[in-house]
Computed example of a mutant assay.
Amino acid sequence: MTISQRDSSQHLSPVPKPSSSARTGRLSWAMGFLACLPVPIVNTLVAGFVMMCVYPATARKGPPQAAENARNAANWGLTVVVGTVAIVAYMLAMGIADLTRSFLPLGWGVIGYVALCIAHLGVTIAGTARSGRRVFSGVVAIPLFRPPRDPANARPTERPDFRTRLTPQQTADQAVLDEASARRAQGERVKALRGVTDGELRIYTRAEAGPAWSESSTSRAVYSVSGISALVAIESAILVILIIAMMGSSKNDGGVFVVGLVVYGTVWLASAIVLTSAVHARLLRRKHGLPDPVQGSGHPFKA
């Protein structure tokens, strides 16, 4: 090495590399730990708003995995904010209406807020841990933030004849779509969906697709069995608390407890039915050698 080359190499500055959290979107989920601030109500509001505010910048500058993780975290942050506001509104309304100042029914707001904090902490821990390796999804959240539309996939004003310029992969996809259409014409309830593992288009029956059959989406991916199981477990714990509280309450508060149990029991039953459908669908897919489907992925060609 010559002197000039040695001198020039000493002046070269290393190119900064983005941090792993910036490449994967883990930072978006980690912002949920702001809820650990020792200020009730304010901590969950701050955590939810920060998780939402991180998404726009990550969607513009980050890679696809980081953008998707940030979008899912933003939807969950919005859900936490809406839940906190609803609980505060309920507590204020019950506090004004309840002149006896007894723990119930005002205490339902406290129980609900504690359950919300526990659920938020669990989702934040799972999101922070898993988003470093893949897109963390499957949590039930308000789907306000949608994935950005790819201009390359936008429908043109004049639709060209794609069949004259199909790639081999697109030809295979079109064959699957044609087969699904033919089977639906015969009365079968089938749908073409892409597998999570390889992205290949396959035909699923309604029983095999499970919750992925629905076109609506909370976080783009199919509802995961683990996510629904966690939700049902939390709802079951709250339901048990309600039953225990009703058994120890006075007769005057019995009507309030009955109404609460009926409403919450209906929510728990709906979640249990979704979980049963998801578990049954997974067993059928394993029996037939099918991967888990991606919800809303029955478009003709890959992006």
Rank of each mutant, 00 (worst) to 15 (best):
Y223D: 12
I228T: 09
V240G: 04
M246P: 00
D7I: 14
Q65H: 03
S277A: 12
R165S: 13
D198H: 04
P38Y: 10
Q186P: 06
A66F: 02
T44R: 04
V232Q: 03
G25D: 05
L116S: 00
S224K: 12
S236Q: 05
C53S: 12
A270K: 14
V262Q: 09
S131I: 12
S21P: 00
T197M: 11
R286C: 01
R133D: 04
S249T: 05
L12C: 09
L99H: 15
P147H: 10
R155S: 05
V42Q: 10
L27S: 13
R159Q: 09
R133E: 04
V81M: 02
A57W: 14
T266S: 13
D253N: 10
G109I: 11
S214E: 06
G109S: 05
I118C: 04
P56F: 12
P148L: 11
T124I: 03
G127L: 06
N252K: 15
A237I: 14
P168Y: 08
V294E: 11
Y90I: 13
E200G: 08
D161K: 07
L269D: 01
P38C: 05
S224F: 01
R184Y: 02
V240E: 02
I273S: 08
P18E: 14
A152K: 15
G95L: 14
G210H: 07
G112D: 02
S224R: 12
G248K: 15
A89H: 11
D173F: 13
Q170S: 03
V258N: 13
P156M: 07
P211N: 07
L231F: 08
G83N: 08
V81S: 00
V54Q: 12
L99Y: 09
G132F: 09
L201W: 11
S249W: 01
Q170W: 10
L121E: 03
A73R: 07
R194H: 06
S19V: 08
S181Y: 06
D150I: 05
R202F: 01
A237D: 05
R101D: 09
G132D: 03
L177I: 13
A272T: 14
S131H: 14
I244F: 03
A192E: 05
Q174P: 02
L121F: 05
M247H: 13
C36R: 08
G210V: 07
D173Q: 10
Y90K: 13
Q10P: 00
Y90S: 09
R133Y: 03
L166P: 00
Q169P: 00
V262D: 07
L116M: 09
E215F: 11
P148S: 06
A47F: 14
A93N: 10
A119G: 08
V80C: 02
A185T: 11
P14E: 14
I118D: 02
M246Y: 13
H288M: 08
I87Y: 04
G296I: 08
E179H: 10
L12P: 01
L34M: 12
T124M: 02
R155G: 01
H11I: 10
I244M: 09
V258Q: 14
P151G: 02
V294T: 10
S219K: 09
A86H: 05
A141K: 07
L45P: 00
G122L: 01
